[in-house]
């Protein structure tokens, strides 16, 4: 089978409920071999449940899951040799050293002693963890833990890697290193299924993105295409001297031909097809005691696309996730 021409992952109408709660409501998508596919959504949108179903940690109630053209829905165990999984919380053994953890994970895939030791040392070196290889995993910093968990996920050279929030809660340097590693995986031909709440990270790394909200995929496209659709618009961001919270309805009513977003308490964003004359809007605000302190044209980003598609403020999503934090 030529993996270049076949979808690495194909999910068709996959659904899952827990009691009365419909966690995933029939999602369908294809991930092409060798691409980085982003799966974005707020907390509780169904991202982790979808990953659990794809990897065999949860049983779908409905739908079909295929890898490289073969249907594995009935027995996902048989597809597990194809995939590596890096969960949102590091799940290695705290009392074991970095080297022993990697070697143990390799043994779960039937790798012989010599092969797994060589591979473990190779990964420790490329993830910058050689000096810490003999130290217990429990004593690692968050960034080091994430890196070792990613190394454990690719120890057996999987064709597909599932990465659930790989950079959440790690320092800037570690996050940058992890992003470089992910980009390196793509270069080596690994298909990556990535969930993250860092939109700019998804924009930088992913080829295609699906937005999932409340268990449904609400938009799915190539990153370039998502941005192109938004680029046609004129976006201007006004920063004001006071809060706009009480005035939102009034602004919307006063300028009904303009689309507005309120990304923060004192920030108003106008989105129009044609360039907007700002004077009436500024005057409108000033008449109500609100001064405009800054006005700037905004080049739309994936974050804007996300906000428009999901209606969710990215900052709030980040804070919620970081509050929860990884282990």
């Amino acid at each position: 089978m030529n993996s270049e021409n076949t979808a690495a992952i194909e999910a068709l109408d996959v659904a899952k409920h827990f009691g009365q709660v419909e966690a995933v409501k029939g999602v369908s998508f294809c991930v092409n071999a060798g691409e980085i596919f982003g799966f974005l959504g707020p907390n509780g949108a169904g991202k982790t449940t979808t990953i659990n179903m794809l990897t065999g940690l949860a049983r779908p109630d409905h739908g079909r899951i295929s890898y490289f053209g073969r249907d594995y829905t009935a027995n996902l165990k048989k597809a597990q040799h194809l995939m590596g999984v890096v969960p949102d919380e590091s799940n290695l053994y705290p009392e074991m050293s970095g080297l022993d953890n990697l070697s143990f994970c390799a043994s779960l895939y039937g790798m012989g002693k010599k092969e797994r030791e060589t591979r473990s040392r190779e990964l420790l070196a490329s993830f910058g963890l050689t000096d810490a290889s003999k130290r217990a995993f429990g004593g690692y910093s968050r960034g080091m833990k994430r890196r070792l968990t990613i190394a454990a996920g690719i120890i057996h050279h999987p064709k597909i890697l599932f990465l659930d929030e790989p950079t959440t809660g790690v320092d800037v340097a570690s996050a940058r290193r992890i992003r470089e590693l992910i980009a390196g995986l793509k270069s080596s031909g690994t298909t990556v299924f990535l969930t993250t709440h860092y939109i700019e990270e998804a924009q930088r790394l992913c080829d295609r993105i699906a937005f999932i909200v409340d268990g449904r995929i609400v938009r799915m496209d190539a990153v370039a295409e998502l941005l192109r659709q938004t680029h046609g618009k004129h976006v201007v961001e006004l920063t004001t001297s006071g809060s706009l919270t009480q005035m939102r309805e009034e602004v919307l009513r006063g300028f009904s031909n303009v689309e507005f977003e309120f990304p923060a308490d004192n920030i108003l964003r106008s989105i129009t097809e044609q360039a907007l004359a700002l004077a009436p809007l500024i005057r409108f605000l000033e008449e109500r005691g609100i001064a405009v302190t800054e006005a700037r044209a905004v080049k739309p980003s994936l974050e804007d696309v996300f906000i428009r598609v999901t209606g969710i403020e990215v900052d709030r999503m980040k804070k919620e996730k970081e509050k929860k934090g990884p282990q």
């Binding site: 065999g56 165990k77 048989k78 040799h81 969960p87 799940n91 290695l92 053994y93 779960l108 895939y109």
Partner: peptide, 15 residues
């Protein structure tokens, strides 16, 4: 509880 059992469940060996 520590989720390391999940790693074992993800290994391609029968339950």
């Amino acid at each position: 509880k520590g989720r390391s059992f999940e790693r074992l469940l993800l290994a391609p060996i029968s339950l």
